[in-house]
Nucleic acid binder design. Structure first.
Lengths: 247, 247
DNA sequence: CAGTGGTCTAGACCACCGG
DNA sequence: CGGTGGTCTAGACCACTGT
């Protein structure tokens, strides 16, 4: 068995390398749920890093739900059920994949528009100053309609996205991260119940008046600038929203 | 103006005291949104604590959304909009209060029962071994019905809750924390759309077939034991679910 | 360049838990 | 009692930012 160690010359921080090592130990079953992992002082000598660094790695894994502390006893691996589905800012694509469905899309619109008042407000745009990118898509899971998504993006003057790029990548967030180095870091989301109007009914292939789940989300960059306002109308019979809350 | 300092003899950890001080500075407007707060080295001398302790306090406030770092520039106060509504495991009562409504309840049932199969599964109970506490309540906001809540609690043999206790406190989580020292620390929650049957319609005072928002939640203790499985049927016209996501 | 946060070290003392 | 995590110190070097 190959010894896995922390490389002090790697550009990746030690606490991050260490967290990866521990995650692998758990995934391979070397350290089991409800069992204690080695103590922080043991980990110090095992990986030749200071306790502060150890604790930084553990804090990360605890926040992600993989481990938990018990005072005076040790650090333990979480039960299987609690290891997965960590709170994430999931894109629709990631969301579908995590449910075992193949994500897909039909792009209905991709254009630059003047933002509606509600959108301008959520994106905190100055009136009549800025135009935004509007993307409307039918979202598919295993080829069947799941939701109707309308996204408004507040990009810079010279920044834009083409239909081809969006079709090739599928995931909008992957695209803006790669192209513009914008990393989503927080979001406000509301969920409520509504019913299908004629247009939604036809696009989602449900009867008019069918119950739908409406999600509205404002997305923020690391520097706390509003990037996107997106609404998704989910078919009530094909979608269940899932979230992991941690304190 | 009174000088606020960190008391090294307090039982409250310094980083926690410091976080409170900083939170107050922001709330009082001494430090403003989008403005940098003093640098970590300045805070060291200001409050006479080490930089590690400073960073521990800042990390807490950043996780809560009050502050954010910008590399090479400083630490900043988040815009107002991002300061409130921090991700929490809110109880219904806390939830209502944060919306400016007075929480209320009508207790329909409080009894010890054999758990239904679905509940036993979510609470990970051994078959036929354990009885659980069932609480059914109509939940009110400003006196009007908002939701129908059914809660199943997996308590110890000698642990129980009386109607009086529940009526007096209102908040179940406050009660179990105080009485049994059980602190909720994580939850899995799903949200989906459904329609009112005859019983729900009558209790929530809506027409049969009205769209409802169904929340189902499993709550976990610090030691990763399942404590509660709770479902809430919200009136679609009176409730909007809100969540803050952070990475 | 000087100032910022990002990472890391090698210690220390404490409260809590089990035998 | 010895072992655990919880807190805290006083340093250090780094990469990134602005001027």
């Amino acid at each position: 068995m190959s010894r896995i160690i922390v490389d002090p010359f790697d550009v990746v921080p030690k606490y991050y390398q260490l967290a990866d090592i521990i995650r692998q130990k758990v995934e391979r079953g070397e350290w089991s749920p409800s069992q204690p992992i080695p103590s922080e002082r043991q980990l110090e000598t095992l990986y030749n890093v200071s306790r502060t660094t150890i604790r930084q790695a553990l804090a990360m894994l605890i926040r992600q739900g993989l481990l938990y502390h018990e005072q005076g006893k040790g650090t333990f691996v979480s039960p299987q059920k609690l290891q997965k589905g960590i709170l994430e800012l999931t894109s629709f694509s990631e969301d579908m994949r995590s449910r075992g469905l193949v994500p897909g899309q039909v792009i209905l619109d991709l254009s630059t528009v003047e933002p509606p008042a509600k959108v301008a407000q959520h994106l905190e745009l100055k009136p009549d100053v800025q135009r935004v990118l509007r993307i409307e898509r039918i979202r598919l899971g295993d080829g069947k309609p799941i939701g109707l998504q309308v996204s408004y993006l507040a990009l810079g003057e010279s920044q834009t996205i083409t239909r081809e790029e969006l079709e090739n990548r599928g995931s909008l967030y992957a695209l803006i991260q790669e192209k513009f180095h914008i990393i989503p870091s927080a979001a406000d989301e509301t969920l409520e119940v509504t019913v299908a109007g004629p247009r939604e009914a036809s696009l989602l292939q449900v009867a008019e008046g069918s119950p739908l789940l409406l999600s509205e989300r404002t997305l923020w960059s690391q520097a706390r600038r509003a990037i996107e306002f997106v609404s998704i109308l989910y078919r009530g019979d094909r979608y269940r929203y899932y979230i992991r809350l941690t304190r």
